[in-house]
Design a protein around this nucleic acid. Structure first.
Length: 507
RNA sequence: GGCCCGGUAGAGUAACUGGUUAACUCGUCACCCUUUCAAGGUGAAGAUUACGGGUUCGAUUCCCGUCCGGGCUACCA
């Protein structure tokens, strides 16, 4: 993966007291689903933070739940990250392969009294926050402690799970770079499970989330935990674990969640939430990144069109908001059109090439400047002409098909709109003759010839121009006609005009 | 239910540690440009800063309450 730049001094924030250690962050997806927008945004923030300060980005797959885990989903998540341009320096590490590490940590907690063996079957566990029947219907009671923590199992027998022994009374506090100082009462925290009970001949089962994250974050020397705000309430548990394992907690930075247009949690019913679907739709990764970065973060100024290098330079945890953001697709599309228009043409060309290859329209001679470079120059000019009207990459092969192939059809609605005048066939025929006779093929020559034909025929130039557009590109909407003619070339324009005239005869 | 976090125009955000016409971007509407449609240009509408109290000479900024939204409350992550 990307080479790690030499560690430089961490700008750091005084109150966080970062010593001199370089920044180390991680993105830790769970393969229970695809890479969704929220996850992608979290990955992006971690990446921006790490790359912006010469730190290290680690990728860790949290697959400790054998039941819900779907290994085949990992590939899609990695693909999504790659498309997003979010690379990592270490990993991917898989928690499923680090089981011994977690068991050792759990045993350490058992040994130093920070954890206990709980023999309660999961359904019978008496601790926690269970629902209970009352005169007013089902009620949830406060956290209670199980007798197992005193070594007096309420329901002896069976295999025990390891639970963390949360201190009675007192508070647990930590620093969050986004939400500030946080303090939680220990009495609100249940004795959470560290290790599942073992099956068959196993002493213990797989690690639970809380143990896995903490052990790995310590082991991987993570300095900043940047993740979704849905983990804010779990953080005190983790801080307790850090202490029990004799480690200092990192700086936490919880970023607000991304909600759907109805302000409810973003889910499949809100449409595309899988980043790979945006790639498939033809968004440019950099535009997508720019849009995503602005969800829950602001550079402070008025500029919103921020290329990746700008994001890298400006990103900071201080700019992260505490308010959940709503995903707004129209704005994403706006960003895409902006990038389509403003990107240096040489940066856009590879994307267009991929698109044309995907649709089978690509011609090898268009590839990078060859012998005389004329074909490549033609492609470059054509894409440049087309791009102000393109919204998504696939538009290059659908909407602008006639620019790259002679096999195209004329849009019925376009004919309906611009071919209704009975004089059109004759005008198009005369224009074909006139253009064919042209010695010079350029914008002005096409312009003069067309206007002359219109004038001679006693019609407004617009009538001929619009009809001609439909004839040569098959669309009612296209780039300015004379520029289009230049790009298509004399022979092609003439033959398409005659083909159009012929189509009238048939009809 | 308990605990926690939020609440600035339809959306994303800004407004130095409270200071006076609440700013920018997307979207919407209008006009200009014009050869279609975009883009671009100009302008407009849209916010009693969720609501109600309080502190203060002064609050979007501080405090309390209410309402609304979200999160956590699993041998999920």
């Amino acid at each position: 993966m990307a080479t790690l730049r030499a560690s430089i001094e961490v700008p750091g924030r005084a109150h966080m007291n970062d010593k001199t250690s370089a920044v180390r962050v991680r993105f830790a997806p769970s393969p229970t689903g695809y890479l969704h927008l929220g996850g992608a945004r979290t990955a992006l923030f971690n990446w921006l933070f790490a790359r912006g300060q010469g730190g290290t980005m680690i990728l860790r797959v949290e697959d400790t739940d054998a039941e819900r885990n779907k290994p085949e989903l990992v590939g899609g998540i990695l693909d999504g990250l790659e498309w997003l341009g979010v690379g990592w320096d270490e990993g991917p590490f898989y928690q499923s392969g680090r089981t011994e590490l977690y068991r050792a940590a759990a045993k350490k907690c058992l040994a130093n009294g920070a954890a206990f063996l709980c023999y309660c079957p999961a359904e019978k566990y008496v601790g926690g926050d269970h629902e209970e029947e009352s005169s007013e219907g089902p009620q949830l009671r406060r956290v209670t402690r199980c007798a197992c923590r005193q070594g007096r199992p309420a329901t002896p027998g069976g295999k025990p799970a390891v639970r963390f022994k949360v201190p009675l009374g007192g508070t647990t506090r930590f620093l969050d770079a986004v939400f500030g100082e946080r303090e939680f009462s220990n009495d609100e925290i249940e004795d959470f499970v560290l290790l599942r009970s073992g099956k068959d001949d196993q002493e213990f089962g797989q690690s639970m989330y809380q143990l896995g994250v903490v052990v790995d974050d310590i082991d991987m020397r993570i300095t900043h935990v940047i993740r979704g705000a849905d983990h804010l309430s779990n953080t005190p548990k983790q801080v307790l674990l850090y202490r029990a394992l004799g480690a200092e907690p990192p700086v936490f930075a919880h970023v607000p969640l991304i909600l759907g247009p109805d302000k409810s949690r973003l889910s499949k019913r809100h449409g595309a939430t899988d980043v790979n679907m945006y790639r498939a739709e033809g968004f440019l990764p950099e535009a997508f990144r720019n849009f995503l970065a602005l969800l829950g973060w602001s550079p402070g100024g008025d500029e919103e069109f921020l290329r990746t290098k700008d994001l890298l330079r400006k990103f900071s945890l201080e700019g992260v908001s505490r308010t959940n953001a709503v995903f707004d697709r129209p704005k994403l599309e706006w960003f895409n059109t902006q990038y389509l228009q403003k990107l240096p043409i040489q940066e856009l060309l590879p994307e267009v090439e991929n698109e044309l290859k995907r649709s089978g329209l690509w011609k090898p001679e268009w590839a990078a400047p060859g012998a005389d470079g004329r074909d490549h120059a033609w492609l470059s000019k054509t894409v440049d002409l087309l791009r102000p009207r393109i919204r998504l990459l696939p538009d290059f092969s659908s909407w602008s098909r006639a620019f790259f192939s002679d096999e195209f059809t004329r849009d019925a609605a376009a004919k309906e709109k611009f071919w209704t005048d009975p004089r059109v066939p004759e005008l198009l025929g005369r224009l074909a003759d006139r253009l064919e006779a042209l010695a010079e093929w350029n914008h002005d020559a096409c312009d003069h010839a067309s206007r002359a034909v219109a004038e001679a025929g006693g019609v407004k130039a617009g009538l001929l121009i619009n009809a001609t557009r439909v004839a040569i590109v098959g669309q009612a909407v296209a780039p300015p006609l004379f520029d289009t003619m230049v790009v298509l070339g004399q022979q092609r324009v003439v033959s398409r005009l005659r083909d159009a005239v012929a189509s009238f005869a048939k009809a």
